[in-house]
Design a protein around this nucleic acid. Structure first.
Lengths: 234, 234
DNA sequence: ACCTGAACACCGTTCAAGT
DNA sequence: ACCTGAACACCGTTCAAGT
């Protein structure tokens, strides 16, 4: 049996997971923009059309990536906790899963309801919000807000750049920091002062803990309004 | 004088704003993916390379779009209000600006600090957070969180689809709704119940008001922790 | 100064074959 | 069933000219 380049066949059999894993590996080192069907085919030693046996189109491939990311969310056991504690645990797990491959986390933003693991996650979040006393329209909106905010938290974490190649990455960050520190301290005192923390993250765990807390506290704040006044403006 | 197609010259002189406006118009009717340099050149009756006289590359064009969107944010006058009221007003204005062209709102997510109007907006937000008593590292992180969450709020509003063409749009939404309502009500009771509100937004104003409130309440919640206990985990 | 024209190295995706 | 090969209609961007 011969392959494209006439050498011994060292291909692993093609399937969705092999292709998706390879796509994630590409994004991890070169950014999500480096994922192309042709590139994938080349790295897997097949022709450009071979992946289409396993995916409808590129959109389907991107859905597959989102699915694989969300499959890594370990939903905690249901236990006798308060709804906000449970919610925080679920959000922690989502963040933990997205942090593993921040370069593809953005793909999740519009695909939670398109994947089975995303549906499972959303259902759990919605259930906890229902438990908290929100009506179903608010449940959808608040649940969506929470998931979106957490995804955005990961994709826009200070220090994140489109191209994760170490050298290019550092050069981009140095340049970005320079452009912020070179701003007028009279016009932009706070931005100049925050330049360092806007360009890199000293403590990832603290950053994500703060993000989850912001989401949880936001929901608690909206809820207390709900119980305080029956004729809420919401 | 002859043009590309040999007809009378009906071209308006090319400049950044003309090109950016056209790009936004394209995105408004066909989605952000329909913005290409070649398409833009064709609609403006010039060759593919003409836009490069005004933009370094496509990334520069996308920055220009973000800049134009953020330029529409009318920062309120500083007045003797509380920091959270002021912050809510700023956030309302940001949302109002992004809502005008939701299809390009996503471009703002990573570009706030790359545009002058974005820097002005961020500086104002940071100042209000400093007023609220946050230390500078938290100011950057919370400010970033707030801006990101509001952008995500607009880009993922229920009823938003990549292609805003009315007929295609409705077809996509019907299909999406069908796929949600066809889920097992035993496995996904909350998602099935929320299907309608996940697929379209009955009241945009209420949706965005809730979103701004979630952000503000989140910040207030994090802040009260700060004053309650000096040895906060944050 | 501003735009053109041709070319290069890519894309996603179709169709018809091959084995 | 699974993959190949050629082709189509696109991309962003380069370089060297034109006026």
């Amino acid at each position: 049996m011969k392959t494209l380049n006439g050498q011994a066949d060292c291909r692993i059999p093609l399937n969705r997971d092999v292709i998706v894993s390879r796509a994630i590996a590409i994004a991890d080192t070169e950014g999500v923009g480096a994922i192309t069907i042709r590139r994938l085919a080349q790295e897997l030693n097949v022709t450009a059309m071979a992946p289409y046996r396993h995916f409808l189109d590129k959109e389907d491939l991107l859905n597959g990536i989102a699915e694989k990311l969300l499959a890594n969310v370990n939903l905690p056991e249901t236990a006798p906790r308060t709804w906000d504690q449970d919610l925080a645990l679920v959000f922690d797990q989502l963040v933990a899963a997205l942090r593993q491959h921040p370069s593809v986390a953005e793909l999740v933003l519009t695909r939670v309801l398109l994947t089975v693991s995303g549906l499972t996650l959303a259902e759990r979040v919605f259930q906890l919000l229902t438990d908290a006393g929100f009506e179903i329209e608010r449940v959808g909106q608040i649940g969506g807000y929470a998931l979106n905010s957490l995804v955005a938290l990961v994709t826009t974490r200070p220090g994140t750049v489109a191209n994760p190649n170490p050298e290019i990455r550092d050069a981009i960050l140095r340049k970005k920091r320079a452009s912020l520190t070179s701003l007028s301290p009279r016009e932009y005192p706070n931005i100049v002062a925050a330049a360092d923390t806007l360009v890199s993250c000293t403590d990832d765990d603290a950053y994500y803990a703060l993000g989850v807390k912001l989401v949880i506290e936001g929901i608690k704040g909206v809820r207390s309004d709900l119980s305080d006044q029956t004729d809420s403006i919401l």
